Computed example of a mutant assay.
Amino acid sequence: MDNIAGTKSGLTWAVHLSVAFLVILWLFPTVGLFVSSFRTADQIATSGWWKSMFPAEQNLVIRAAAPDTQVQQGDLYVIEGDLFEGRSAGTVSVWGISSRAIADYKAGDTAELNKGGTITVNPDGTYRMENTEEFTGSRGQRVFITATTPPEFTTANYESMLLDPRNSEGMTKAFFSTLTVTIPSTVIPIVIAAFAAYALAWMEFPGRALLIAAVVGLLVVPLQLALIPLLKFHNVIGIGKGYVGVWLAHTGFGLPLAIYLLRNYMVGLPRDIIENAKVDGATDFQIFVKIILPLSFPALASFAIFQFLWTWNDLLVAMVFLVDSTGETTVMTKQIVELLGTRGGNWEILATAAFISMAVPIAVFFAMQRYLVRGLLAGSVK
């Protein structure tokens, strides 16, 4: 009965559940990064992104208005304001005026200030400071509050990264520098590999089997193994550190996979089409350009996705083969690392910068993902 048409075996359901689990596992950090990029620093510090749609209890340290804003009302000097000014309004539960006693008072209570006078904090965050003498000093009184705040989302993080000259200039340079590295590093190996794959698939010449075996063997050579020898070789031939060196490094280590993938796809194309073209007098180059390339577009797109994602997210090769002392050739991954060093506490800025860096690869993947499976299954069935 298990083999009746229309029924699904337990293995099929296991495969579906496994795929769903992997998709959720992949989306979880991406969605988290996206949500965090729209949250404020206070909310990121107090709750996870999965709680972003619900009210959260936060411990905040806020300064009241400075003494120069005080006004005289009869015999009293008064400072009034709103602790939530510039923030989402919340509800204060407890508060204090000392870091060692942040919950000494309930909302609505009045506390005695160390320098004289009193302060009253209401549940809605408004406060009133009173004193029979003038308030002195250049800074306002610190108030520690525990408040339940509603969900808050802001575009200020993106405005800071994209519009603020202190940040946007570096990110803009890094964006175009990354494009300068990624586009040639994707196009060059595809062009070379397409010619090589056609030769290995449809042209007869001595040593073809050995070349195919060599390509398969090169798939397992780790990139890190050749970085230093390759850099020394670049210095000897005069390339040094620059875009050309990065392009050649990515091309060299991308070619084995590209040739293997494209060759497997091309060898599965109908032989009759190619033989008919040869009978009609077409040369190998004409067959390659007018027949093979159009039919091999799924495999080309599949490799392009992998190569683009790899080179766009690369940090190691860029740090080894690019001189970025002036900041002109700093790629986005390096720029984010620098932000991590200079603004390591600003998680909202780091999340925004990371998602900006992810936006282009995500767009490329979803634009070309329909070709991915067809390209990966190249040569698996006849």
Rank of each mutant, 00 (worst) to 15 (best):
G81P: 02
V19Y: 08
I212K: 15
N122G: 00
M203G: 05
F288Q: 02
D284C: 03
P184A: 08
N122L: 06
Q286I: 09
Q307N: 08
K115Y: 10
I192T: 09
V381P: 04
V381M: 11
G86N: 04
W202D: 12
V187C: 10
V94G: 00
L377A: 14
W49M: 05
V360G: 08
A213F: 13
L113R: 12
T329F: 13
F308C: 03
I336A: 05
A351E: 07
P165E: 09
I119W: 01
S185M: 05
L350D: 04
D68T: 11
N276W: 00
V373T: 13
S357T: 15
H16I: 13
L162Y: 09
F308M: 07
G48M: 01
V323F: 11
A213R: 14
L376G: 03
E152K: 10
I212E: 13
V323H: 13
L340S: 13
A193I: 08
A5N: 12
N114D: 13
G137H: 07
A194V: 06
F366C: 04
F355R: 06
G137L: 08
M203D: 07
A258S: 14
F253C: 02
K51C: 05
A101T: 08
A14F: 12
G375C: 05
L376T: 03
T148E: 15
T180Y: 07
S168I: 05
S325P: 02
I356M: 14
G32L: 00
L230R: 07
A111Y: 02
V381S: 12
G108D: 03
Q43D: 14
D124L: 00
V221C: 07
Y198M: 06
L293H: 06
S357C: 14
L262I: 03
L76D: 12
L269W: 03
A107H: 01
L225E: 03
V331G: 11
L248R: 01
G10Y: 10
A351S: 15
S168T: 09
T148H: 03
T120G: 00
L223C: 00
P150C: 08
S160D: 15
A103S: 13
E85W: 01
P55S: 13
T333M: 07
A147P: 09
A156Q: 14
T182F: 05
M358S: 14
S302V: 06
L309Q: 10
A282N: 07
G327S: 11
G140M: 02
I291G: 01
P256S: 04
S138Q: 12
E152W: 06
R139P: 00
V381A: 12
E328C: 02
